[in-house]
């Protein structure tokens, strides 16, 4: 699927508009004058169109790993490939213009209007004026800001609005790859949840391969198709889906990192509908929830009703049942 904001199709470099895999191959980064590497023999592949959340303690090398992709930092050894081609073989400027880049502090250009901010890379790529204006409008729609915002200056926007513009600016030239370094880290919890949801729905429309750095495991669970946990010293502790990390952490470090409540977190990932046995009938008087409810909420309903069996309904009609024991098993701890 291509970005609906560029229905005219891919532009610029031949691969614009289609998602590409990102592959780290035995990447090590040692900063000059430091004994310990910041990234130590990192190998992982983010499949095309997926979002990989990089999590880990502060100083774990998340930002370093991300900056290796657009060559803000050069690796000491190893290689990074985008769509099978080494980033080291690209001209840096071309490479960076093909990669959307979003940082926590946003970094909008204060002297440019929102429209000019979003149009920065398209202008450098030589798009004509109408096309840039058209694109800017669509991107404002995409991040749910009124098109009239194009004429404002960054100082006239709230923090959440600024970060939306940061996103729109990164998406402007329809890059196949996005790098996001704690993009929502500076926002208040409500705005943050809102933008997270918007980014998720936006991701469904635009297929991008995303590396998303965060130190918030809950955010990683919410945003990531896959999660890579880095331990101090920049070594990969575990790489897998949220369910794998929560259900089967490889060691105490990962178990600690995902949290003592990982069983509950895991339950939030699945709905009662997925677990319900459609053939089973709940006993009379059993508490009842709809199929889309998360297992976590189902569990709390069961506990509140002091019951063993939960009735699952679809569109108001009984559609099976889930037992407390099954939920316990799904929590996997």
């Amino acid at each position: 699927m291509t970005d609906p904001a560029t229905q005219e199709g891919p532009v610029g470099a031949s691969h614009r508009g289609e998602a590409l895999a990102i592959e780290f191959r035995h990447v090590t980064k040692r900063y000059p004058g430091q004994d310990a590497p910041a990234i130590d023999d990192l190998s992982l592949t983010v499949p095309p169109g997926e979002t990989c959340c990089l999590v880990g303690p502060s100083g774990g090398g998340k930002t370093t790993a991300m900056k290796l992709v657009n060559r803000l930092i050069e690796p000491t050894s190893g290689d990074i490939l985008i769509g099978g081609r080494s980033v080291l073989t690209y001209d840096v400027t071309t490479l960076r213009r093909d990669i959307g880049y979003v940082i926590q502090q946003v970094g909008l250009f204060p002297h440019m209007t929102i429209g000019a901010n979003i149009g920065t890379i398209p202008r450098l790529l030589g798009w004509d004026k109408e096309r840039i204006a058209e694109r800017t409008g669509r991107l404002l729609d995409l991040v749910r800001l009124d098109r009239s915002y194009a004429k404002r200056y960054p100082a006239q926007l709230s923090g959440g609005q600024q970060q939306r513009i940061g996103l729109a600016r990164a998406l402007a030239a329809d890059p196949p790859v996005m790098l996001m370094d704690e993009p929502f880290g500076a926002l208040d919890p409500i705005t943050r949840a809102e933008i997270q949801d918007e980014f998720l729905s936006l991701e469904n429309e635009i297929r991008k391969t995303v590396i998303f750095v965060t130190h918030d495991i809950d955010e990683a669970i919410k945003m990531g198709d896959k999660i890579a946990v880095l331990r101090p010293g920049g070594r990969l502790a575990q790489y897998g889906s949220a369910d794998e990390l929560l259900g089967d952490p490889v060691d105490d470090f990962v178990a600690d990192f995902v949290g003592a409540d990982r069983g509950l977190k895991r339950l939030s990932l699945r709905s009662v509908g997925e677990l319900a046995d459609p053939g089973r009938e709940a006993p009379p008087g059993a508490p009842s929830v709809s199929a889309g409810t998360s297992l976590r909420v189902g569990l709390s309903v069961l506990l509140a009703a002091n019951a063993e069996v939960l009735e699952v309904t679809k569109e108001g009609r009984p559609a099976g049942a889930v037992t407390l024991a099954e939920i316990r098993e799904a929590a996997g701890s």
């Binding site: 840096v92 213009r97 880049y101 940082i103 250009f109 204060p110 940061g166």
Partner: peptide
């Protein structure tokens, strides 16, 4: 602001730009 510079560099502006 350093973040403005960082964003510009990361987006693919050359030092001259």
């Amino acid at each position: 602001p350093p973040e403005v510079r960082a964003a510009a560099l990361g987006m693919g502006l050359t030092p001259g730009q």
